[in-house]
Simulated assay, not measured.
Amino acid sequence: MKFLSLALFAFLLAGCSSGPRIDHSYTASGQNSRVQYIVLHYTSTDLPHSLELLTKEEVSAHYLINAVPPTIYQLVDENRRAWHAGVSDWQGRTWLNGTTIGIEMVNQGYFDTPNGRYWQPYAQPQIDALIVLLKDIMQRHHLPPGSIIGHSDIAPQRKVDPGPMFPWKQLADAGLMPWPNAEVVARQQAIFAVSLPSVAWFQQQLAQQGYTVPSSGVLDEETRNVIRAFQMKYRQALYDGQPDAETAALLLEVNRLSKS
């Protein structure tokens, strides 16, 4: 009896260690990719330091793109979470590390000089490589146009990357995001120049676009930061955070495109 008990115990242990068989023959139709957005960043440093920071520190990204020669480094599998977004909000979603793919571009960002702030431009080969990567990611994850956002969009109170030198219009020309029609914007700007909408209107339009913004009707620093983030994407010649007629026209047109 003692021998039989030991044999039975060994059999049960063997069964527990192997576990039940997993059947993969069925697939649910009600599913999609965990990826909702692609977030663009600049590294604020050179390639060697970027690689060190993104592989040996807590911060990480799925991809890093060098400028010369244009090289795409995959640092985190797309099915895993990378630590690139931090405290973030977009279109009602928060803490976006879990639902985004982060792409870092090797770029120094900006330098403050006696003559003002200098922003480093992006190298065209780097942007060309980025566009190829973005098209591939969006196709594989079935992302709609407009799913590409900047770190400054999801964290406008503390981040400014990818900055006003990033060529968003090139992404639009490649079919990756909608872009406001210049003639429509000019006509609407003339109307808003006669009667500028209230601060509350700007806040409502920015929130409709996806930004987290106060709804106080007061032009406070938080609201100006959000306006500045929007301007750095759609009006890079002037991003002073002021609610003017051109910004109002751009907001109205971008939100119209988002609905279509």
Rank of each mutant, 00 (worst) to 15 (best):
A82E: 13
Q120D: 10
W95M: 15
S152E: 11
L130D: 06
Y110C: 04
P214R: 05
S44M: 13
L53Y: 03
A28F: 11
H84M: 15
L54T: 01
Q208C: 01
A193Q: 15
M105G: 00
K159V: 05
G15Q: 07
L196I: 13
Q157T: 10
A28V: 10
S33W: 08
Q209A: 14
V254P: 00
A28I: 09
N107C: 12
V132H: 11
M1W: 06
L96K: 02
D46V: 03
G217A: 02
Y122A: 03
L8M: 09
E222F: 08
A200K: 11
N115M: 07
D77W: 04
S260D: 12
Q242T: 15
P243E: 10
W201G: 08
W168L: 04
V39D: 01
V76C: 02
L251D: 08
N107A: 06
L51F: 01
T212F: 08
V218D: 00
I137C: 03
K233G: 13
A200I: 04
Q91W: 04
G217W: 04
K159Y: 07
V87Q: 13
P164R: 06
I191E: 10
G109H: 01
Q188F: 06
A82H: 05
A245P: 03
F11C: 15
P162H: 14
S44W: 12
E52M: 12
S60K: 05
W179V: 10
A207K: 14
D220Y: 12
G15K: 04
S147K: 04
A245M: 06
A14Y: 01
L130R: 06
D89R: 05
A229R: 00
G102P: 00
M177F: 10
Q126M: 13
L53E: 09
G109R: 00
V35N: 02
R158T: 15
M138G: 02
Y239F: 15
G210N: 04
R81G: 00
G175A: 05
